[in-house]
Design a protein around this nucleic acid. Structure first.
Length: 684
DNA sequence: AGCTTTCAACTTTTT
DNA sequence: GTTGAAAGCT
């Protein structure tokens, strides 16, 4: 498939040139929305705005990085590096690092990741049950995303369970306060609070950005929308880019209401729809349009393309999950043999739920086809990386108790459970952090001298490291500092001691070295167009450590690997492949139906959008595979194909204009009737 | 009763 | 591949 033309189409142009009032761009799948955003930023620069006054907000670091990359190609690396392109969360960090003190937050506050939060909730709620704690975490997060605090949550809590969750939330809030820590949700909630309750700060931030561009607007939740409005201010101008048909995150608080409210809240809103698709063949687009047509429309929009009809969408009925995976493997091999997929990375297998990846992994491995599972365990989820992150966080904020507890025991330094429990009691009695408690003169009333010595030694080590982390600036110094520290810590030894398999320990140490390299590179600063380091952009290890919780998943371990992608439908949004297989397209899976769960209209509509997202990932060929039987326990039970297959109306997709297409179709039908097909050993 | 073992099930995910 | 629940064992 050819790439988009160099010139913008009329709708895109209109979106780019609309500079002086709020603008909503309804960007259908593959309609060049990133192009529009980047061109619009260029246009704004051209109109005389400072690059730093142009803000583009995305949901993921990956999207932000990609946008900056594209901007660089368009406006040069100098201007691009000054553009305020960031995620919602890193914008929140920036605002809180600047103004957190106005909310009573110290500048070095820590950012907790979801495991830290889980730990705190377990503790605060007095349970060891991870499942219960996870439910609390989930509930509390949804509340926070609706803008509720613990007190307000208690008022809206429906049943006993929610009441308990609200009480836990109360204690959780107190803990975060004591730790001087914020969670991911706070990175949105607190900046909003700042803008709402601090007029001077609000005015300052509203002046900071002259034009806001928001990507994937349909994924915003209630609090994010409020933050945008507050940031835009009364007379502000912004560009929201999104697609209501691709709203698939309702379950985590995203609300299409934000799209509905936009024309109401901004009566002078200009709505522009991008309907020309530059990605998929006619057959694929037609299937996508048919499916999504079943959903009620917020804004009328229908994708079309100039590309020919292409290959018809194929439905592949399989006997079992194993069979399905084998058929997918065969398809990949056939596409390669035909030359349709010169690279493995031309193919993706998409499915509804993560566990479906397993069989595919197995079969791909036996077929010696390289693959990657997207959305799998992140680099930053590894225990060894979390260990080091805990240390770095402690350097940033000594009052970060969860980090303290992890660091003080990693590696073991003769400070045990008992000592820490006593220290913890002491600290909470005096309402100080664990670190502060270390140096309390009255600590000897609680602990023995020997324990105190060990603890204070640890404290001095942290202080010393903090000092040095502040000094270590630039890539080379960072590398020296980090490696020296690891050596002093004896971390490599610790890994080999704790792991019974030498190979595994070796791998872990490798991750650690990758991590060191990764931090060092971030300390290195931006390169000027001539290739030399711009001094002013160099950062110290401490500065990089401050943002570590927010920069997850950017561990770029070879973006351009030539491998087949396995991904959930959710994780596939925004991506595209020449050849896509949608797997397990069965009732119960997509649309998903849990046990004893009512299928509401809303749920069904979101599932349908998910299917739509899946279909529109494909450029040239799309295969949809279904299971005739599904595993349930030991036996196989009959499975129904998804209703979405019928909704694609594939039978109508025989091209009327192109007789060659019809001929091809006929040949295919004949082949299907043949008892045995050469490239389908499965028929045997 | 408390432990171990076996068996099956498993939403979607970012920061 | 992991976790939770249920059954079985001491």
């Amino acid at each position: 498939m050819s790439s988009p033309p160099d010139l913008l189409n009329p709708a895109q142009l209109q979106a780019v040139h609309h500079l002086h009032s709020p603008c909503l761009v309804l960007a259908g799948a593959g309609s060049g929305k990133t192009r529009v955003i980047v061109h619009k930023m260029a246009k704004l620069l051209q109109s005389g705005l400072e690059p730093s006054k142009i803000a583009a907000i995305t949901f993921t670091n990956k999207a932000a990085a990609e946008m900056r990359e594209r901007a660089k190609a368009m406006v040069g690396s100098r201007a691009a590096s000054e553009l305020a392109i960031s995620t919602f969360h890193s914008l929140g960090v920036r605002m809180l690092r600047t103004d957190g003190e106005r909310l009573g937050l110290k500048p070095n506050f820590s950012i907790l990741d979801s495991d830290d939060v889980l730990g705190i909730l377990r503790d605060a709620g007095g349970t060891t049950d991870a499942k219960v704690a996870r439910t609390w975490q989930w509930t509390i997060s949804l509340w926070k995303n609706q803008g509720l605090n613990a007190a307000q949550a208690a008022a809206v809590a429906q049943d006993d369970r929610e009441q308990v969750a609200a009480r836990v939330m109360q204690r959780y809030e107190e803990r975060l306060n004591a730790y001087q820590a914020v969670d991911f949700d706070d990175l949105i909630v607190l900046p909003l609070k700042l803008l709402q309750h601090d007029a001077p700060a609000a005015a300052r931030w509203q002046d900071t950005f002259a034009h806001l561009l928001v990507d994937e607007y349909q994924d915003t939740n209630a609090v994010q929308y409020e933050l945008l409005k507050a940031l835009v201010g009364r007379h502000g101008v912004f560009t929201a880019v999104g697609d209501d048909d691709q709203s698939i995150y309702g379950w985590r608080g995203a609300t299409i209401d934000n799209l509905k409210r936009l024309p109401q809240d901004f009566p002078n809103l200009k709505v522009i729809a991008l309907e020309q698709n530059y990605r998929s063949t006619g057959a694929i687009l037609r299937a996508a349009n048919h499916v999504i047509a079943k959903n009620p429309k917020l804004f009328e929009k229908k994708l079309w393309s100039e590309y020919g009809d292409g290959e018809p969408v194929q439905v592949i009925a399989c006997d079992s999950e194993e069979h399905e995976a084998e058929r997918a493997v065969q398809r990949i091999q056939a596409l390669r043999a035909k030359g349709a997929a010169p690279k493995f990375s031309d193919v993706a297998i998409l499915y509804r739920a993560n566990h479906q990846a397993r069989v595919f992994e197995q079969k791909l491995r036996t077929a010696q086809i390289p693959y990657k599972v997207s959305g799998g365990q992140s680099f930053f989820d590894r225990a060894e990386i979390k260990d080091l992150c805990a240390w770095l966080r402690l350097l940033v904020n000594q009052d970060d108790d969860p980090a303290f507890l992890r660091a003080v025991t990693t590696p073991k330094r003769g400070i045990g459970h008992q000592t820490l429990a006593t220290l913890g009691e002491f600290a909470s009695r005096w309402k100080v952090s664990l670190f502060e408690a270390l140096f309390s003169p009255s600590l000897h009333t609680a602990l023995k001298g020997k324990a105190i010595d060990a603890l204070q030694e640890f404290g001095r080590e942290v202080n010393d490291l903090e000092h040095r982390a502040r000094q270590a600036r630039g890539a080379q110094e960072a590398r020296v500092f980090l490696l020296g520290w690891l050596k002093a810590l004896g971390y490599e030894q610790h890994l080999f001691d704790g792991e019974d398999s030498e190979k595994l320990a070796q791998a872990r140490w490798g991750h650690v070295l990758d991590f060191v390299e990764w931090i060092s590179r971030r300390c290195g600063g931006e390169l000027s167009p001539e290739g030399s380091v711009i001094e002013s952009t160099q950062m110290s290890v401490l500065e990089v450590a401050q943002t570590i919780s927010v920069i997850i998943s950017l561990a770029e371990r070879g973006e351009d690997q030539d491998v087949v992608t396995l991904s959930t439908l959710h994780a596939a949004k925004g991506l595209e492949w020449p050849h896509v297989v949608l797997a397990g397209v069965n009732e119960g899976l997509i649309p998903f139906q849990g046990p004893e769960e009512a299928m509401t209209v809303q749920r069904l509509e979101e599932e349908r959008r998910l299917m739509y997202v899946g279909i529109t990932r494909a450029r040239t060929t799309l295969a949809v595979s279904t299971l005739r039987r599904r595993k349930r326990g030991r036996e196989m039970v009959a499975a129904q194909p998804s209703r979405f297959i019928a909704e694609m109306k594939l039978d109508e997709s025989v091209s009327r204009e192109d007789p060659r297409e019809r001929l091809r179709k006929l040949r295919e039908a004949l082949a299907a009737q043949a008892p045995r097909v050469l490239n389908d050993p499965e028929g045997a």
